[in-house]
Design a protein around this nucleic acid. Structure first.
Lengths: 183, 183
DNA sequence: ACAAAAGGAGACAGAGTTGTCTACTCTAAA
DNA sequence: TTTAGAGTAGACAACTCTGTCTCCTTTTGT
């Protein structure tokens, strides 16, 4: 029954995202999921593997959400509007599938696992690359400079919303960006 | 002899910034500084106090550096240029007083200590507020929308440079920003 | 129905952590 | 010179965390 595994990943993702990976021990995941430790170690060889599975789950969920947000863009301006409107919803806890906003799981986790050669850090990097590629794929008029700017503003808005307690950062970004986009 | 305390803070800051606070134990700080554990606990009641002291040290150092970078701005455009040129130097390890670039110590530490009520998280928030105030103080033509944008771009550039291995993020930000600024 | 696999509960080993404490050494001032 | 304060070295207690293992129960496939 593979939904034990799914339940473990879901529980761990929730806890890791809300409190940080290093603050949550295996026993906490056990307790909250109601699954035995032995079962966990049946599915995952180590905590690191569980963490990687939660990153993969979050990655897929975020990509799905973002894909839905960015559908049907007919101009770069529309793309920017949809991107930052989506972020704005997320920051205000109106993006159900992303859970309670606590910054970017990948930025936070990369900060906890600083060694760039670690598998966890690499997974965070790969996520960011994939998101950039997804935005690029939804760009009607390819423009690498604009792509970079969107990504930088996106990361900045996430950090400001989280660390700086500035949940309107996405809207502010969009307001500042719009005068640049005339197409 | 208070330079024992200073040496402890400096050693801890270096280690915490390079590897993350939770990855570095007290014993590591002891070993690298050559100072006895008892002496450390003479100056600091707990590891948390040592962490707060390193945050304060880094804060002062960053504020000093940024103040120097932003001196003598006669227009908002010049302010933006100086800000992102400074960040560009930092990302390329050419800002001596900030050490080897490993992202923003405060963003990273806030990610490790996610509980917003913890003293450590609060210190990170206060730093961000102080930096925003410093930028505001160097703005010849007050403009709160631009101030927000500068801060969001700054955070985004730091995250992209670090997590995304994109050290030119500051230059890209500036290039994108310049068309907006005509004064 | 019954054997085999999967799961539950939790004890336990081993490593690592913070923080305390003791015993010894060095230094600086009276 | 001697005495008090500061520092050193490191053992140690108390705790936490990961990962293993055992014993027992439940579920599942044939």
């Amino acid at each position: 029954m593979q939904n034990k595994r799914q339940l473990l990943v879901e529980t761990a993702l929730q806890l890791f995202y809300q409190h940080g990976v290093n603050s949550i021990g295996i026993n906490e995941v056990i307790k909250h999921s109601g699954i035995a430790k032995k079962t966990l170690y049946n599915y995952f060889a180590s905590k690191e593997e569980l963490v990687l599975a939660t990153l993969a789950e979050r990655h897929q969920r975020f990509i799905n959400w973002l894909t839905a947000q960015l559908s049907d863009c007919h101009s770069n301006r529309e793309l920017a509007e949809k991107l930052f409107s989506g972020l704005d919803l997320w920051f205000h806890n109106k993006a159900d599938s992303l859970g309670n906003f606590r910054g970017c799981f990948f930025i936070n986790t990369a900060a906890e696992f600083g060694d760039p050669s670690s598998a966890i850090h690499q997974a965070c990097l790969q996520h960011k690359r994939a998101v950039e590629a997804l935005i690029a794929a939804h760009m009607p008029q390819p423009n690498t400079a604009l792509l970079s700017l969107l990504c930088i503003l996106k990361e900045g808005a996430i950090v400001c919303a989280y660390v700086n307690h500035q949940p309107d950062a996405a809207r502010q970004s969009l307001q500042a960006l719009l005068p640049l986009l005339h197409d």
